[in-house]
Amino acid sequence: MTPDQTNLLQGTLDMMILKALALDQMHGLGISRRIEQITKGTFQVKPGSLFPALHRMEEEGWLVSSWGESENNRRAKYYRLTKAGRRQLESETQRWGRISLAIARALEAS
């Protein structure tokens, strides 16, 4: 692991996954690549944390999954956001905005 790769903060992985799926449905590897891409490689999601999170979120009702063909004709399990998932993404985004603002202010103050 390269030094500038940061471990995901607890609780932020869900938000990343929701964000990654905001545009289109994707399979596991796609989600992981998409997160790398949107965070410019800062976050790398390992399968050991990705799959438990996907299954948990599916149980929460934020995602639904279905089997489909990948871009090069491979079978893969695709995940897609539900309405509840979208609502969750919104509230997570807002919450994150508040937190990061607060932290930024706190750091400026000192």
């Binding site: 590897l29 399968p47 299954h55 990948s70 090069n72 491979r74 079978r75 893969a76 399990k77």
Partner: peptide
């Protein structure tokens, strides 16, 4: 079984990449 399939697919896709 479903989970097995999913992980195998993941591994295949990664290998192809």
């Amino acid at each position: 079984r479903d989970l097995d399939d999913e992980l195998r697919a993941y591994s295949d896709l990664l290998a192809q990449e």
